[in-house]
Simulated scan of single mutants.
Amino acid sequence: MTARVDHLVTSGTFSLDGQTFDVDNNVWVVGDDVECVVVDPAHDVDAVVAAVGGRRVVAVVATHAHDDHVRRAPEAAGRLGAPVLLHPDDRPLWELTHPASVATTDLVDGQVIEVAGTSLNVLHTPGHSPGSVCLWAPDLGVVLTGDTLFRGGPGATGRSFSDFPTIVESIRRRLLTLPAGTRVLTGHGDPTTVGDEAPHLAEWVDRGH
């Protein structure tokens, strides 16, 4: 069977630095009819479990540890029988939502997650948060960017644990070097492509000065 990317949108809140916002999150399920990886199972665990169906879940991957992305991750992982994978640099953010006793398995830059005959390559892309990662699936022509890159530019960096020059450098080195036709599947909002975003790099750099 050929691997594919399934998509659902869930709604809830994001809280950090004493502020709370209503948000819609993209949840991505990468796999075939037999097995899959769930990326950022936000807000509605029942909806995520329904999207998975009867498939074996290899892993639940958190692109970063902001609470809208990970608040329900332990519950989702428990119901799906899979580990939560998180870059260790985001442990301080994770522990704002979950105690240290709630375990995750470390993601590392360059790690390859195999699922349904395809590979998800882990790219460490700090900036939106210290441990933000993207998942590049060259066979599928997609990169799942979490909140690192959106249609129209970088993810937000105005809150704790974030840094604008760092996110721009991550995007420049790790994402805009991917093939131009690569579809960018984001943590919120509509998809884009590497080719559509690359011409705007200089604008983003200027925005930080």
Rank of each mutant, 00 (worst) to 15 (best):
R151V: 04
A137M: 05
P88L: 12
H128I: 07
T125M: 04
F161G: 10
V115K: 02
R183G: 01
E169I: 03
R4V: 02
V205K: 11
V184H: 00
F21D: 10
T63K: 07
P130Q: 10
W204T: 11
V52I: 04
A180G: 12
D206A: 15
T105G: 02
W204E: 08
G131I: 10
E75N: 07
F164T: 13
N121D: 04
R183D: 03
D89I: 06
I167T: 13
G195L: 12
A77C: 09
D90K: 10
H69G: 06
E197M: 03
I167F: 00
S101P: 00
A3H: 06
A156N: 11
P191N: 05
N121E: 13
V70H: 04
A103L: 11
V52T: 06
N25Q: 06
V168K: 06
V34M: 02
D17Q: 10
D163T: 07
S101I: 06
D147T: 12
H128L: 06
G146P: 10
G187S: 10
A202V: 12
G131K: 10
G187A: 10
R4S: 05
V29P: 04
A73M: 14
L120S: 04
S160L: 13
P88G: 12
T63P: 07
G195W: 07
N26S: 13
V84Q: 04
T118W: 00
G153L: 10
T20L: 06
V58T: 14
T193Y: 08
H87D: 15
T193P: 10
D90T: 12
L135C: 07
V57P: 04
G31P: 10
V115Q: 03
T148W: 00
V52N: 03
H66T: 10
T177Y: 00
T63L: 15
T145K: 02
S119T: 15
R55E: 03
S11M: 03
